[in-house]
Amino acid sequence: MKNINVKGFTLSLIAALFMSGFAQAGGGDDPLLTKVMFDEVERGVGSNDPTSFNIQAWVGKDINKFWLKTKGEYEDADDKELEIQALYSRAIAPYWDAQIGVRVDLEPSPSRSWAVLGLQGLAPYFFEIDAALFIGDEGRTAMRVSAEYEMLLTQKLILSPEVKVNFYGQNDADLGIGSGLSDLSTGLRLRYEIKREFAPYIGVEWARKFGNTAEFARNEGKKVEGTQVVIGLKAWF
């Protein structure tokens, strides 16, 4: 997996997507569309708090899409994270998309690459779910699940609780990651949709490391648990 050619994979994905449907002319019910989503672009209000983002984009049609997911966090030069996923996404059920592709963690060092098997969609009771299994080299495995819900206080003022968990199959001491439940974060964000596509928010996020991951953090003198107040922007186009 180390030598995975992300660019080549991406291009062949796009090619496959185009071959699958774009060659046909006709009804015009299914135009090629693009959506870019700044799901979370935020900064902690404390002076040492990190700046972080979670940005996704897709290009495609009703059933087949090419999906990019990036997330990152910057606290200082020594503490930064940057992850990119390139996925082929296919609708497999009325509310669910199966996603397959690659993930590259560019930061922190050393970089890690993973194959991705994911499921994204809307569960009953309107929970937005993104679950993925990651398979890396040297037997590394990981799983991430996030769930989000939207409560409409008014038509434009929306309170959104969210939970994210990460699990790892084995220790990765270089990165301070331990096996088992590694970390959990939960947030509550209150956004105001000035228009559908543009919503500033305030929120609070609590995160905690568990097990060996927590152990690694303690050994390095880092925090195991933290709460921060954030301000941010959710936008799409």
């Binding site: 008014t154 038509q155 799409w236």
Partner: peptide
């Protein structure tokens, strides 16, 4: 109209401001 159609594909509730609220 092409934009309206695209908006609906990207978020089917785009034009619905009558959803149930917490109140």
């Amino acid at each position: 109209p092409e934009k309206i159609y695209a908006n609906l594909k990207k978020q089917s509730t785009y034009y619905n401001y009558s959803e149930r609220t917490v109140s």
